[in-house]
Amino acid sequence: MFLIGSLFGKFMEESGAADSVARWVIERLGARVRALNGDGCLPVEFTGGGLAGGPAWIDVSSSSQYASALLLAGPILPRGIDLTLRGHVVSAPFIAMTAGSMAEFGVRVERPAPDRYIVPAGQRYVAREYRVEPDATAASYFLAAAAATGGSVRVDGIGSGSAQGDLAFVDVLARMGCEVVKEADHIEVTGPERLVGVEVDMGGISDTALTLAAIAPLATGPVRITGIAHTRAQESDRVAAAVTELRRVGAEVEELPDGLVVLPSRDRLRGASIRTYGDHRVAMAFAVLGLVVSGMVIEDPACVAKTFPDFFDRLEQLVSVA
Rank of each mutant, 00 (worst) to 15 (best):
A251C: 02
G295E: 07
R248T: 13
V253Y: 03
R248N: 15
D267V: 09
S294Y: 07
G271H: 05
R281A: 11
R248I: 01
V297H: 15
E255G: 01
R268T: 14
A285C: 01
V243I: 05
Y277D: 11
E252H: 12
M284Q: 06
G278A: 08
V297G: 03
A285F: 03
V282Y: 08
I298V: 08
L269A: 12
D300A: 13
A287F: 02
M284D: 05
L260E: 15
E245W: 00
L246P: 02
A241W: 03
V288E: 02
V293Q: 07
V249E: 06
P257D: 15
E255K: 08
R268H: 13
H280R: 04
G278N: 11
C303N: 08
P257A: 15
T276R: 03
H280Y: 09
P257V: 07
Y277I: 09
R248F: 08
P257L: 11
A283Y: 10
T244C: 10
D267A: 14
R247N: 08
G295L: 10
V288Y: 00
L291Y: 08
R248S: 05
H280F: 07
E299Q: 15
A283L: 11
L256P: 06
G295Q: 10
G278H: 04
R268W: 04
R266C: 11
G259N: 08
L246V: 04
A242N: 01
V304W: 02
D267R: 15
A302S: 15
R247P: 04
A241E: 05
D279G: 07
A240S: 15
V292T: 13
L269N: 05
G290R: 06
G259P: 03
E252M: 13
T276M: 01
E255S: 11
V261D: 02
D258R: 05
E254P: 00
V297K: 12
F286I: 10
A241I: 04
V297P: 01
G271P: 02
Y277Q: 09
P264G: 06
P301H: 00
R270F: 04
A240Q: 14
E245D: 00
R247V: 01
G250Q: 00
H280I: 00
D300K: 00
R270W: 04
S294R: 15
L246N: 01
E245C: 04
R281N: 12
L246H: 00
A272W: 06
C303F: 08
V288T: 08
L260H: 13
P257R: 10
G271K: 01
V292F: 12
L291F: 11
L263E: 14
L246G: 05
P264E: 12
V297W: 09
G295K: 10
R268S: 14
A283C: 05
E252Y: 11
F286G: 06
I298T: 10
L291D: 11
D258K: 08
E245G: 06
L256K: 09
A287K: 01
E255H: 10
